[in-house]
């Protein structure tokens, strides 16, 4: 069974982060929220694995 990969897994992380912010540039908060929702749904579909998605949801929810 697959589990959520929480090890660093993105090549050129600075470049990715800059691209992530750039895609939000010029949007209102509401537009950014909507973009993020679409992004989550696309990425979730790409992952597909229900177990992994559940673990990701719990990891994101967890807050000290």
């Amino acid at each position: 069974m697959n589990s959520l990969n929480t090890k660093a897994n993105i090549k050129s992380p600075d470049e990715f982060y800059a691209e992530l912010l750039a895609v939000h540039e010029g949007l209102s908060k509401a537009e950014s929220d909507a973009l993020n929702a679409r992004l989550i749904l696309l990425l979730a579909n790409h992952i597909g694995d229900r177990q992994v998605l559940s673990e990701a949801l719990q990891a994101a929810r967890r807050k000290d």
Binding site: T6, K7, A8, I10, P13, D14, A59, K63
Partner: peptide, 12 residues
Amino acid sequence: DLSERYEATRPM
């Protein structure tokens, strides 16, 4: 926030 618990985002 995530970096405290997960290595995943530390490189960012």
